[in-house]
Design a protein around this nucleic acid. Sequence first.
DNA 1: TCTGGGGTCCTAGGACCC
DNA 2: TCTGGGGTCCTAGGACCC
Length: 418
Amino acid sequence: MQHIALLDCNNFFVSCERLFRPDLLGKPVVVLSSNDGCVVARSKEIKDMGIPMGVPYFQIKDMLTKAKATVFSSHFALYRDISKRVFDVVRESFPDLEQYSIDECFFTFESDDPLIVAAELKREVERQVGIPVSVGIASSKTRAKYLNTVAKKTTGLAYWEDEKWQQEFKLVNLTEIWGVGKGRTAAFKKHGIVTVDTLLSLAPAVVGQLFGVEGVRLQAELLGKPVLLVSPFRLAQKSITSTRSFAKSSTSYAVVEDAIKYHLHQCIKDLETMDLLATGLKVLISPGRYSDYAFQGASKEIILTAPSRDVFVLQKAVIEALQACFRESVPYKKAGILCTGLVSVDKQTPSLFSDTETIHNQKTNSISQTLLSINAKYGQPLLQLGRTETQGRAWQVRKELESPSYTTSWKEIKTVRS
DNA sequence: TCTGGGGTCCTAGGACCC
DNA sequence: TCTGGGGTCCTAGGACCC
C-alpha cells in the first residue's frame, strides 16, 4: 500500500539550540524572531505554560524571567545547517523526499507495516543528528499533516486504519487542518461548517460553489484522496526578497537608502548563489504596523530592460525608485527589496534594446564579481558599492541573545573535554 | 520603549482589445 | 430615452504556510 509520510522536527529551533546546550533539555527555552520581536519557537515546557506562538517578546518577558527560561535570538545559519543534516539522513532511505520547509519533508513509500518503517527512520535521525522528530503517515498530504500533530502529542509516530479515521476524524475542528486559516474558518462558519464531518457531508459541487477550487481540493484531501502530490522536483523559485524592520524607526532618507542598498546586496548574493537573474525589482518601505502612519507604506516597481544581477544597473534603478516613493516626515520602520521574474542565466533572452547595455554589463559584471568574491572571502558585507557603515547603526536589528556559530564558524566551534 | 521574514497561490478588478 | 460583450493579461492584495 502506498503511503504519504510527513516528517517534522519537534520544536525545531529550540532543538537546534539544545543540541549544543544539553543542559537545557527538559528546561523552558524560547527562540525569538528577527529583532528579538516575537516568539517563534517554544519548548514543551513553554507551551505548557500557555505561551502562544508569535506572541511579542516584551509582553511575556517577565513571565519568562520568573520561569527561568533561556531565551535565544534566532540563528538561521545554524538552523539551516542542522536542517540539511536531518534531510541527508532521511534521503539515505527516501531519496525522493520533498522538502517542504526548513524542518519538514514529505516522502512516499510502500509497506504493510508503515509504523515500523517510520520508527526506524525516526531512530536513525535522532541517532545521527540528535534532533527529535515526529512522523505522520496517511494517504494524503493533508491527512499526514494532521496525523503529525497527533504523533507529536503521543509517541512521535502516528498511522490510522480506515476505521479509526471514521471514528476519530469526524469531530476534529477545521481550524486544526493544514490550509485552513482565519479567512477560511470564517467562510466555513458562515455556512455552519465547523468540523471535518460537516464539510465531508457536502456534495463536491456544493463545496465548489461555496468555497471554490481550494474547498474542493481540501475536501478530497480530507477524505484521503490525494490531490497534492509528493514531488522531489522543486519548482523554480519565483521571487527573492530581503526585508527587515529597523531597531528604531527613522525619517532620514540617508538611513532608508542605506537599508535599501543593503537589501539589494543581499538579493544579489542570493541571485548569485542560485545562478539567476531578475527581470523586475520592487522597493518596499513602510512605517511601523502599529503606528499612526501604518498606512503610509509605499512601494515602487522597476521592470528592467534586460534580466540582470549587476550591482551597478540594479542599484541605480533601485535608488531612483526609492526617491520616487520616499516621503519626508514618515517614520519608516522597515525596508526591503523584492526581485521578480527570475530567469536562469542560460535561458536568458537578450533584450531587443540592450546592445549598449550588454557591453556595459560585461565591464561592470567583472567589478560586481570582484566585489562578491571579496565579500565571500572576508565575510560580508565588507565592501559594498556606494555604501558605508556610517548609516548602518541607525537601522540595524537587535540580536542580543544569539547563540555561537557552533557549526558554521571555526572560531566558535564547541570545545569538548573529557 | 518593545509586535519577524520569506515564500506561494488565488482572486477581483482594471486596462485593453476586437 | 437609448451607450456591447467577451476575452486576455496584469497587478494589488489577501490568505496561508513555516
